[in-house]
């Protein structure tokens, strides 16, 4: 009887120890696995996609949905507007839903705060409606007006055709939209020029803290965009 009791006691202790060791090893393995997953930001799901990828995909689809909704809203009015699609690297002048000038973006830069905004829930509210152009600056005149006074000896100059050409080598344009969106259009992205151009404007401080996008497009496209837009024209964004 005593031997049996002792044996039972030892067996019980043995089972207990085995179970404890098994549990601890199981938990350690789980913690290790979890740490690995967390580090790599990979959380699997039934589709086999990481969770971050799914969230990013939903965010991007929502941005695209708003882009098309706003494009339709924008097509309701008669003004010349801008559709900025950084995913497709296109900036397009549009009137009434007709793409009148698609321009290829050769390079672009997005400010950090605009990238951070993509992780925030306010992003969709921010993109809910088209942006409205409030102020604009450029180093070319909006309208290349040449004054001609009528005099008695008014004759056509010899270099008439040369005078008709605009000799512009580089254009910098700053378009300030509502909700603190700033679009800087240039031919070659240069941080120094971009910063100084924005800071030198009368509302430099305000613009400095805005959500900024710098685009590099060819000179003819930049000129056409600047001259086509008027105050109050709209912009839609996909990024």
């Amino acid at each position: 009887m005593g031997l049996k009791c002792l044996a039972t006691s030892y067996i019980s202790k043995l089972i207990l120890c085995s179970l404890i060791i098994a549990s601890l090893s199981c938990k350690a393995k789980h913690d290790e696995d979890h740490a690995t997953k967390k580090d790599k930001n990979i959380v699997p799901n039934s589709t086999g996609m990481p969770l971050d990828t799914i969230n990013a995909k939903i965010t991007n689809l929502n941005i695209e949905r708003l882009f098309w909704e706003n494009r339709i809203k924008m097509a309701q009015d008669k003004s010349i507007d801008l559709a900025l699609d950084l995913i497709d690297s296109m900036v397009t002048l549009e009137i009434k839903g007709v793409r009148i000038r698609p321009c290829k973006i050769s390079d672009y830069l997005i400010s950090g705060n605009l990238l951070d905004l993509k992780q925030e829930p306010e992003l969709l509210t921010w993109l809910e409606n088209p942006f409205i152009l409030q102020n604009q600056w450029a180093d070319i005149p909006k309208e290349p007006i040449k004054i001609r006074y009528i005099t008695s000896d008014d004759t056509m100059p010899d270099n008439y055709f040369e005078l008709l050409k605009e000799n512009i080598e580089d254009i910098n344009i700053v378009l300030h939209y509502n909700r603190n969106l700033i679009l800087h259009i240039c031919q070659e992205i240069n941080h120094v020029v971009s910063d100084s151009l924005i800071q030198n404007n009368s509302q430099g401080e305000l613009l400095g803290s805005g959500y900024r996008i710098t685009l590099s497009v060819n000179i003819n496209d930049a000129k056409a965009i600047y001259r086509a837009l008027s105050s109050g024209s709209e912009l839609i964004l996909r990024y």
């Binding site: 696995d33 979890h34 997953k37 967390k38 959380v43 699997p44 799901n45 039934s46 969770l51």
Partner: peptide, 10 residues
């Protein structure tokens, strides 16, 4: 981690 997995698997 488990909660996230559970939330996304089912």
């Amino acid at each position: 981690g488990y909660a996230l997995i559970a939330a996304n698997t089912t």
